[in-house]
Design a protein around this nucleic acid. Structure first.
Lengths: 173, 173
DNA sequence: TGCCGATATTTTAGGTTTCAAATATCGAAG
DNA sequence: CTTCGATATTTGAAACCTAAAATATCGGCA
């Protein structure tokens, strides 16, 4: 038997050994997705009905609210975990609505800073309060202790996932 | 003091009483979002690089794979938790790729059944295997026991959220 | 100074998503 | 049988999102 064939067989065996684990991981992922889809759809609906805005716009404003002096588009896209081109369009619309303003970065003529206008800040604070209340309803099922457990597990999972990605474990397996 | 003003004050007091809880619920939600965004972006990338497809297409095929006789577009949109119009377009593209086929529903001329073609079934099984392996890497941080805990907590949270929604607790608060 | 790889942003093309309006059909009540 | 509210789907407009190419600038190095 060739070494390659041996390795393939090993892999096959290993795969079967861990198939149950695969199953439960898949089920967890699907459950997580369906829960977050449920919550997200309600938040989107409420943002639209109550404030005439969208979740991506709210997210962008939430990022800006913490940085009083604003931040660069690039940093914004990293924090929001979306592409640069996406942020360009979002900022465009928020500027058109008067909620956000752009200004050139002081030392770097490639970059520009973007920040909330006073209007934007006021509007956001309203929305953030409502947002927190909606979440308090939608997550009512979990007690404080359970929230802590879940926070810890998600934190651990994320840490390991980042590690695996950094080691390239997801590539060409 | 008017009744309205009294109610508003009560609401205000209540809000402050529960503010810590609000905080932890918000933090949990953000952590859940950031973890699922991380996993999702990797799965999207892998589906594109390895199979030249997208997550929504994969999701649609995954729904169809369980129903051998196919299902109606409406049922599909409910299970995927997306709008009807969305499904129309997705099915259109999958039909064009030869992975899915439509046929009129037997008794209802408004509806049509949609199902995987044999090609679609074969392609999906390949993708599903890879998908499970990616998840096994991305969720490696959680032990079997922890997965069970998280499954239970998510299930509970979802149940309560559905209940709250059914009782209209998210409306005009 | 002038070149060059890296970084910040925009643009382009295609796909995804939503809502609301339009179309077609169903099923039941009169 | 006819009408009418409900259901299944499609269409249209606008937004969101991505990847990849294009543009502009930076910063270091010869």
């Amino acid at each position: 038997m060739t070494l390659l064939a041996q390795n393939l067989l090993d892999a096959e065996t290993k795969a079967h050994e861990h198939e149950d684990q695969h199953q439960s991981q898949l089920r967890l992922w699907l459950r997580l997705l369906s829960f977050s889809a449920l919550v997200e759809s309600q938040i989107r609906r409420r943002l639209r009905e109550d404030f005439g805005t969208t979740l991506p716009r709210f997210d962008l404003m939430a990022q800006l609210e913490r940085a009083h002096d604003g931040m660069t588009l690039n940093e914004l896209s990293k924090r929001m975990m979306v592409t640069n081109g996406n942020v360009t369009g979002l900022v465009e619309r928020l500027v058109a609505e008067g909620l956000v303003e752009r200004r050139p970065a002081p030392r770097d003529r490639r970059a520009q800073f973007v920040r909330l206008t006073p209007l934007g800040r006021g509007v956001f604070q309203h929305m953030a309060g409502a947002h927190a209340r909606w979440l308090s309803v939608l997550l009512r099922g979990l007690e404080e202790k359970e929230i802590e457990i879940m926070m810890a597990l998600l934190g651990k999972a994320k840490l390991f996932a980042r590690g695996a990605l950094a080691r390239g474990e997801l590539e060409i397996p």
